[in-house]
Amino acid sequence: MYSFINSLLPATLFCILYANSALAIDGEAAATLSLSPQFCITASEEQNCDIELLLNWHTAIPQVVCILSNYQALPKWCADSADIKALSLKVSTQEDIQFILINKLTHQTLAGAQLNITPTAEPQARRRFRNPWSLF
């Protein structure tokens, strides 16, 4: 009984992983959403990233799409027709922005993309153990 469970468990895990993999491949094939640029490097965490983004998408079948985001100035944007496959927008942010491509009619999620804000690392400091002017 114990050996049966031991042999069944890996087989079950394999099936679950295979199924997830297949779904992911189907999802990727169905629609893609690309973002350019994907990264914005700022001088510090307090500095805004002011940048113009270009979103491009592709769907396997023509469909009217909407783009949702957690960027306050653009919570939702919808295309007027299935022929529109790109969106250009200016953003000013200190935080990452998530974009989600959905079907306008069914609200089905098709793809996603993210703008990553990366502040440059500030120089690290440590304690100095000697007084700079101590030569005694």
Partner: peptide
């Protein structure tokens, strides 16, 4: 209150 120095410089 301790004196500090930038690492690597």
């Amino acid at each position: 209150g301790s004196e500090c120095i930038t690492i690597g410089l």
